[in-house]
């Protein structure tokens, strides 16, 4: 019983998220939920490395895009079933993470330097994906519409919601387990003070590489789900800076280095985004493009101003329990 206690809050949140598509049956809402969960999953990947490990990446698009392109290419070009392609795609995401991590961390890049090198890798991936024939080049790659659960395509949006939630839930439980285990402790030690961690006998390089590898795998899974949901990819979608930004915004807004941060952040950000969009649209009839995004930017700054340690940081009790 007591072994389960640290996981109870996660299971409760998952249960609430699982009920949502039953309560909200409109396509708009369900689509919003799925997209937000995908962002939350990508954010979990980022948070493991950035939140727990203190290594801020600006280039999680490298992992997201690799996962997305891999699952699309394996099924469209090689005729592999997407369910079989999924683990391969996730594995490739992990591999990209391991390679970038090994190169960057061996060169002892930290802080802004690490952030910028990840950004540069993502840009290289984007430029290459835009010209390679296997990715469809600039025309992108279209996953054939073939609605069948065996084909990783669902007629029922709720089913896709639950599937995405399954991934997110598994990752949240995993992160909580890591957080409570030796790996989590080492990772946090690296974040707080690398030299001290090294003095205590932590293999800093190995911990960082392990974290970015796992981070890459998780974010690649988010890419796979995105590909299967929208069935179309091009270089800008898969490797564009938008997803790198989404993946880091969600945990920072929600609460860095917490299991719930990325989920909360994704919901708050996209909730605000949708609300301002709808509100401004009804107010102006859509005649003034951009005003909703101005409002979104203002709200973003205000949120950061009032909740400097993320929204979870505003709830001291929860923070204590989460830590």
């Amino acid at each position: 019983m007591s072994a389960l206690r640290p996981y109870a809050a996660i299971l409760a949140v998952l249960a609430v998220l699982a009920v949502l598509p039953v309560v909200f049956t409109s396509g708009t809402m369900q689509n919003f939920l799925i997209f937000t969960l995908i962002v939350a999953l990508a954010g979990q990947g980022w948070n493991l490395l950035g939140g727990y490990g203190g290594q801020f990446s600006f280039g999680h698009a490298s992992f997201f895009g690799t996962g997305a392109y891999a699952i699309a290419i394996l099924q469209e070009r090689l005729g592999l079933n997407p369910w079989l392609a999924l683990p391969i795609a996730i594995g490739l995401g992990a591999l990209v993470g391991a390679v970038i991590g090994t190169l960057a961390f061996r060169a002892r890049l930290r802080g802004s330097y690490f952030a910028l090198v990840t950004l540069a890798f993502a840009e290289v991936f984007r430029i290459v994906a835009n010209v390679l024939p296997v990715t469809g080049g600039a025309a992108g790659i279209l996953i054939r519409l073939n609605v069948d659960p065996l084909n990783f395509q669902f007629a029922d949006r709720a089913a896709f919601h639950w599937l995405t939630l399954l991934f997110l839930g598994a990752v949240m439980l995993l992160v909580r387990a890591l957080e409570r285990g030796r790996f989590g402790a080492r990772l946090v030690a690296v974040r707080e003070n690398e030299d001290a961690a090294r003095a205590l006998g932590v293999d800093v390089l190995r911990v960082k590489i392990a974290a970015i590898t796992l981070s890459g795998a998780i974010t690649a899974a988010a890419g796979c789900l995105y590909a299967q949901k929208f069935l179309y990819l091009d270089a800008m979608i898969a490797y564009g800076p938008w997803i790198s930004v989404e993946a880091l915004l969600a945990p920072i807004i929600g609460g860095l280095g917490t299991v719930f941060g990325p989920v909360l952040g994704a919901f708050v950000l996209h909730g605000i985004g949708e609300l301002t969009k709808t509100w401004i649209a009804t107010l102006t009839g859509g005649a003034l493009p951009g005003v909703d995004l101005v409002l979104f930017g203002v709200l973003l700054i205000i949120t950061v101003g009032f909740a400097p340690r993320g929204i979870l940081g505003l709830l001291p009790r929860l923070r204590v329990r989460a830590a």
Binding site: G111, I252, G290, V298, L300, V304
Partner: peptide, 27 residues
């Protein structure tokens, strides 16, 4: 004032400013 001197927050604030400026110019 909004960033409280924290790296992650400065990132978000400047990102927020970029969104505001770009879209205000668009409008």
């Amino acid at each position: 004032p909004a960033s409280h001197g924290d790296d992650g927050n400065i990132l978000l604030v400047t990102l927020g400013l970029a969104i505001i400026i770009e879209n205000a110019l668009l409008a």
